[in-house]
Design a protein around this nucleic acid. Structure first.
Lengths: 224, 224
DNA sequence: AATGAGTCTGAACTAGTGTTCAGTTCTTAT
DNA sequence: ATAAGAACTGAACACTAGTTCAGACTCATT
């Protein structure tokens, strides 16, 4: 007798896998990466600890997938925002604003995905995630340069620096902790976006205009 | 009979303490923070594991002191460089350049001090360290603003963003890994310093001049 | 219904390190 | 020289989480 997975079973398995990943994501959003331990995640996903290992070979794999997952969403949001912009400069501004809004909206999650200490080795996955996001930003910078809106420069270094500025100022340990207030949060996003754009050579006055344009239509409390 | 510590003994104890800290520092510089474990550090300092605990209550304390120690040196170097500059703008450029040169010269150590995962909790100490450095940079930014060389802005956020840009571009996982080459390393430092200064509003042409001035006199391979 | 393959459970196992402490060695003061 | 306090040693201990696995359960096939 050959046992064959019925469609229903396949769906259930997929659902369970998603549930585990979702539980990990929620746990990370609430308590940071340190809280993402097998036992609590399993409880949250309504499975036993051992079951997690039927879906993910190890904790490192689970977290790596979590990172990839979150990055995928982030990247999609960046592309959507940038593609909707009228020109290369606004596209760059939109991309940067999107990142800024995302990280302030889910600070613990972002911190966990980006930089928070983890016991297991997820450097590979984090690196890939950063490369994806940085690559997208780099492409937008390059486009703005080609359009003559920015001075020629090392786009890879510029993209890395730009993202580093956003992250450190908005989600790092130095980030202001009173960002509960919507107005202040908005201010912070605008200020940092402005800084980031100036860094790559957008003229100050022009940058202000772009940032205001880009921030206004963005939903500040955009869901995951 | 009262045992009293003789001067010689006091000196030996202090020397041993320093030796342990130095061993920790070297270990971190070579293998990152992950390599800073009690046993290896003890071996390197020529003491037994237990002895470490006569000088530091716990590993967390040891690492915290290490972080404070490195930060102290860094801060001193920044102040020295900035104070030697002729005006507020050059002082800021000198400060930024100093940070850039330091981090690229000791990348593993910097990464370990700044952000590398550690098992024990050293967030307090890292936060303090960042606040010190950021505070100094912030003061220099504020001075340049007062002198009318920079537009008014949130100096705290600007300092955080500026340092974030340097760190991410030069020591983070995205940093180019071919920085062995002195020339490329120098280029990277210049490029990123330029970006950082532009971010806070230094005009592009002026920034180039300041950076060249600041980079030239700096010893690229400055010792710890 | 019976059967066997697939899946789930959760207590037990494992591994790697920080930490302790009884015994040893060194130093000081008489 | 000797006693007592201080410092040092390093093997043993403890703790924390990730991982495993034998048995229980569920589901597809005949």
């Amino acid at each position: 007798m050959v046992y064959r997975r019925t469609h229903q079973v396949v769906k259930r398995l997929a659902a369970r896998r998603s549930a585990i990943l979702a539980a990990a994501r929620e746990t990370c959003a609430e308590g940071g990466m340190a809280a993402v331990q097998i036992a609590p995640v399993a409880v949250r996903a309504n499975v036993a600890a051992g079951t997690v290992y039927r879906y993910f070979p190890s904790k490192a794999d689970l977290i790596s997938e979590l990172i990839a997952d979150v990055s995928r969403d982030e990247l999609a949001a960046i592309r959507r925002a940038a593609d909707a912009a009228p020109g290369p400069s606004s596209a760059l501004a939109a991309a940067v604003t999107t990142v800024a809004v995302h990280v302030v909206s889910h600070r613990k999650l972002s911190w966990g995905i980006l930089a928070e200490p983890v016991e297991v080795d997820v450097t590979e996955s984090r690196l890939a995630s950063r490369r994806e996001i940085a690559g997208e930003v780099e492409a937008r910078i390059a486009a703005a340069i080609r359009a003559g809106h920015l001075p020629a420069q090392d786009t890879a270094l510029a993209a890395a620096a730009l993202l580093g500025a956003l992250h450190e100022a908005l989600v790092g340990p130095m980030a202001p902790d009173n960002l509960e207030d919507q107005a202040k949060l908005r201010d912070a996003v605008q200020t940092v976006t402005l800084l980031a754009l100036r860094a790559v050579g957008v003229m100050d006055a022009r940058a202000r205009g772009l940032v205001v344009q880009a921030v206004l239509p963005t939903k500040m409390a955009a869901g995951a």
